[in-house]
């Protein structure tokens, strides 16, 4: 099928927000994230008050954290936005996700108090980061030593089987049935991350809708080209 050798009239596509299925039953486990999912899934039977979740960008840390939040009622705060109020809120909720340690910690003292509180009040804190705690620059010794002592679980970039499954899930979220060979093609040619998967699926959806065609390999190829090949990571 031609991939648009002549300019085709593009159908206007309305940005209808679709709800990405980010619930627990939509979380897919493969070898790349199984151990992390299992360990986090032991909550409230964690062995300590805090747990580090380490993995590269796009591996699905946030989704996994959200799955835990849906059970624990944890709040989510970016490490770069930690503030006094988080201590007070933690006192009541006693479950917290602190996201992206590697992107900067706004207040190391608050991090220290939250980790202490978690121990004292039997709370739970899940901390996510792209790099292991030993590689973080942390000035306050109390926070530094607590981060370095965290038990860790790691999650890898999605493997191919997971990527395929995620693609199918994302298509199915958009009510699109896509043939396995198209899925295979996309999985083979895309960047290995959850974000890339959702970008590609969105692009495919838009193209298919604009062309009013079912999803073919040609459309997939065009979408892949449109969202870019693996970016230099």
């Amino acid at each position: 099928m031609s991939t648009g050798s002549r300019p085709e009239p593009q159908q206007l596509v309305l940005e209808l927000a679709h709800l990405p299925a980010l619930g627990a039953e939509d979380f897919l486990v493969s070898a790349s994230n199984a151990h992390a999912a299992e360990v986090i899934g032991r909550w409230p039977g964690w062995q300590g008050p805090a747990l580090g979740l380490i993995g590269p960008e796009g591996a699905g840390k946030t989704h996994l954290a959200n799955v835990w939040r849906s059970r624990s009622g944890a709040r989510l705060v970016a490490a770069s936005a930690l503030g006094e109020t988080d201590i007070a809120l933690f006192e009541t909720a006693r479950a917290l996700v602190i996201e992206d340690l590697d992107r900067g910690i706004s207040d190391e003292r608050i991090l220290f108090h939250v980790l202490n509180l978690a121990r004292e009040r039997r709370g739970s804190v899940l901390l996510t980061s792209r790099v292991a705690p030993g590689e973080l620059e942390v000035g306050l010794p109390d926070s530094r030593s607590r981060l370095r002592a965290l038990p860790l679980v790691t999650i890898e970039a999605p493997d191919e089987a997971l990527l395929k499954a995620v693609l199918v899930k994302l298509f199915s979220d958009r009510q699109l049935a896509v043939d396995p060979h198209v899925i295979n093609h996309i999985a083979l040619h895309m960047e290995r991350s959850m974000e890339a998967a959702s970008r590609v699926v969105e692009a495919v959806d838009r193209l298919a809708l604009a062309r009013q065609r079912k999803v073919t390999r040609a459309i997939a190829a065009e979408a892949l080209a449109a969202v870019g090949r693996p970016t230099g990571l």
Binding site: G23, A24, E25, F27, V29, A37, I40, G41, W43, P44, V67, W68, S70, R71, S72, G73, R94, A95, R122, G123, S124
Partner: peptide, 14 residues
């Protein structure tokens, strides 16, 4: 946590 069991979606304290 990975379950789709709706009864588990309600927040519980540790």
């Amino acid at each position: 946590p990975l379950s789709g069991d709706a009864s588990q979606v309600r927040p519980t304290l540790p």
